[in-house]
Structures are given as structure tokens and as C-alpha cells.
Amino acid sequence: MSRGKHLGRLLFVFSMIALLMAGCEEPAKSVLDPQGSTGEEQLTLIKISIYIMAFVFAVVMVIFIYVLIRYRQKPGDDSIPEQVEGSTKLELLWTVIPIILLAILAVPTVATTFSLAEKPSEEEEALTVKVTAHQYWWEFEYEDYGFKTAQELHIPKDKKVYLKLTSRDVIHSFWVPALGGKTDLNPGQTNTMTIDAKKVGTYEGRCAELCGAGHALMNFEVVVDEEQKFDQWVAQRQEPSSQPQTAAQERGEEVFSQNCMSCHAIDGAELERKGNKAPNLTGFGERDKIAGVLENNDENLEKWLKHPDKVKPGSYMPSFDFLNEKDMKSLKAYLQSLE
């Protein structure tokens, strides 16, 4: 029996150490460290509810531990305790106090629910972006500037961004933990949400509604820049450099037009058509990631082109492992040259 107790204690110590160790790691994207006003408002509410609930939990635990220690049956004590029916006073107490606590939580809850649903006013000159989710990638359309991009949502610092969210296939959910909570993207319906960012940086985004085999890798990034830099980026997107410069790139463009064009579009290139089934690749060479998952370098690009399904299960992109080495090289050179 004593050995059992010993082991129990050991387990306890082990689990406590495990919990402590967990605290050492720095999370990359955290709800608890918001970088925009939407996330801040939500964190405020999270904090209010945590404080109230921690208080409730503490009260329960104090009574609980006291009761367990004080009223356990002592050996040899066979007396029968008094059979109490209840106590109207006490029962009223633990009915009324929770009601008050919940009212304290309900008021800011309702207020924030309404304030978050508000559309930004005219004076705020919000940037409007139409977000369309696809299995398993994101399309961002800057309606005011007349271009589309994919996988990277660029926004200026300290400016409201009004997102119009919809889906072209199944239900997805847009989530950038550091900037704000989720909104679903339903086919045939447009939802809206407003976000902003107070700090320059790159913030990780995820799809948060099960959308199929590639759900876990339907990642995207929100890139926040100073307004001036953002304007430069917009200008670059409007006037992209998509013309091949070298012979290899020229061959690459040809390979692209033979294999990729029916799904992918490149603005400013001399291509017969602009496919819209897959991400718009304008400025691909400047993107951080391939398919939202792999770091954007030559080696990974080849990996992706040859076996997209191995990188992102369920991806609709066919594999291009049939391209000969020269064509593959040219295609990569052309894609990487896009700015």
C-alpha cells in the first residue's frame, strides 16, 4: 500500500514538472498576446470571464478540500450523521450570487458582440478585402485596387480592414489568433469582420473549420506593413513584373502556358488565359511560403510541383513529375522571377 502511495506522489510530481516545462515554449501565434484591437477586445472579455470563473472555482475548491479533510470517516466512528434536508438561506445564496456574477459577465458580452459586428465608418477609410476560401487555399481580392492575390493577406498598420468572407466549396473558417477570432466562410453567403493590426509583422492564419483532407495545412499569413510600404506593395501588384528576362525564364513561361495556365493566373504576363481555379501566382517569387506550408525556395518548389499531394493531402493540383529536368528548372526559374 505504501509503495502505491509513493508511486502516486511520483506521478504527481512528474505531472507538475511537465506543466512547468510546457510554460517555457514561446507560442508563435497566441490569443493571449493580441496585436490588433479586435483581438484586444476579445482578450478583455476572456480575462473578465477567467477572473469571475477563477473566483467561482476557488470557492468550490476551498469548500471541497475542507469537506474532504474535515468530514472523512474516522476509523471506529460508526455514528450516523444528522440527516439535513437542506437550507433555504444557503440555497438562495448560491442561486443569487451566480446570477449576479453572470449579469456582470453578460453586460460587456452583449456590448462587445454588437460593437464587433459594426461596419467601420466612412471616416475610418477602411480597406476592403474580399476573402474567398477554397479547398485548401485562400484568395484575397483587393476590390478597391482591382487585383487578386493568394495565401498572403497584406494590410497596412493601424488601419481598419473590412473583410468580406465567402467560400466557393465547403465551409471554412478564417482565423488569425493574434489579430482576432474566427468567422466562418459559408458557400452562398457573405460574412463580414473587421480587423486591424497595431504592430508591423507577419501573423499566422489557419482554417478552423474541418474542410477536408488538407484542412490542417490550409495555412495563410497576414503581412502587416507601414502604410507607405503597403502602398508600394499595392503599386507593385498593380504593375507586376511578370515578363521573363532570361532564356530559361522564357522557356519557363512556355511550360507554364502548357501546364499551369488553365488553373493559375499571372497578372501582366503574356498568357492566353487567366485560370481562376487555383491561387493567383502574381509576385510568387516574393511570397514567404509555397502553398502556405513550405518555405519558398528552389528545392521545396520542386518538391511541391512534383508531388503536391504528399505535401498537402487532398490538394487538387496534379503532380508534374513528368516534366523533364530542363523544363522543371525553367519553370522554377520563371516562377521565382515573378515580382
Binding site: 472579455l45 476572456i46 458580452t109
Partner: peptide, 11 residues
């Protein structure tokens, strides 16, 4: 609480 739930939901 819906605004908080936007963050917790499906996580």
C-alpha cells in the same frame, strides 16, 4: 460569450 468564443471556437 460570443466575442471570446470567436477565439476559442473550433480550437
Amino acid at each position: 460569450s460570443p466575442p471570446a468564443d470567436y477565439q476559442y471556437h473550433d480550437s
